[in-house]
Simulated scan of single mutants.
Amino acid sequence: MPSSSPREIDPWKVKCAVRNAKIYGVEDRIDFVVGDFFLLAPFLKGDVVFISPPWGGPSYSKVESFTLDMLKPKDGFSIFQVAQRITPNIIMFLPRNVDINQVEELSWLSSPPLSVEIEENYIRERLKGVTAYFGNIASGSAGFLQLCSGTTS
């Protein structure tokens, strides 16, 4: 199995992801599996885990500060702990109004503490989401380029 194996419950989303992987020429580096992350995670190992947990529907945008306990089906801290059992290199895509302090807290609650880099994602000059990079994939980490090029040691 290639180092990146997304798990998704919705087959339509997997179909879209496969199409995107083909467009970017990386389909041979990814195995796509339809399944529940929490049931599969204990059996997974990988270089990077990308997590985009459900935000609870459109109501997320009505709160001033979206806290990690509002993520579904489990809170963000629990989701992060499960992902850490796979790898310390984690990417989380979160709502634009997420509590950044809580996201940073994930890094120093880890043992050992992880590097973290947080990036705002804009479409047509409008903030759409926040991406947090943990571990060796945080920008500026030497391991990021190795992971992206597939030359992990």
Rank of each mutant, 00 (worst) to 15 (best):
E64L: 12
M92Y: 03
W108I: 09
D99R: 07
N89I: 08
P73V: 10
Q81G: 13
E105D: 15
A83N: 05
E105H: 10
P95R: 02
L94P: 05
F66Q: 03
S59R: 14
L109G: 12
P113F: 12
K74G: 01
I79W: 02
S65I: 15
M70V: 07
T67Y: 08
F80S: 00
R96Q: 10
E64F: 10
D99P: 01
I79P: 02
L106F: 04
S78M: 02
P95V: 01
V98R: 02
A83F: 05
F80L: 00
I91A: 11
L68H: 05
L109M: 14
S78T: 14
S110H: 10
F80I: 00
V103C: 06
I86R: 05
K72P: 02
L71P: 03
E105K: 12
E64C: 07
E105Y: 08
F77T: 07
L94A: 05
I90P: 04
P112I: 11
F93V: 09
L109K: 15
K62V: 11
N101W: 11
E105W: 09
Q102Y: 09
I100F: 05
E105S: 13
P73T: 13
Y60F: 15
A83Y: 02
K62M: 14
V98P: 03
I91L: 12
G76K: 06
M92Q: 01
S115Q: 12
S107L: 00
D75S: 13
A83D: 03
L114A: 06
M70Y: 10
V116L: 01
K72W: 06
V82R: 04
P113H: 10
I86A: 04
S61N: 12
Q81K: 15
K72V: 10
S65Y: 09
G76C: 09
W108F: 15
L94S: 04
E104Q: 13
V98A: 05
S110E: 09
T87A: 11
Q81L: 13
L106Q: 04
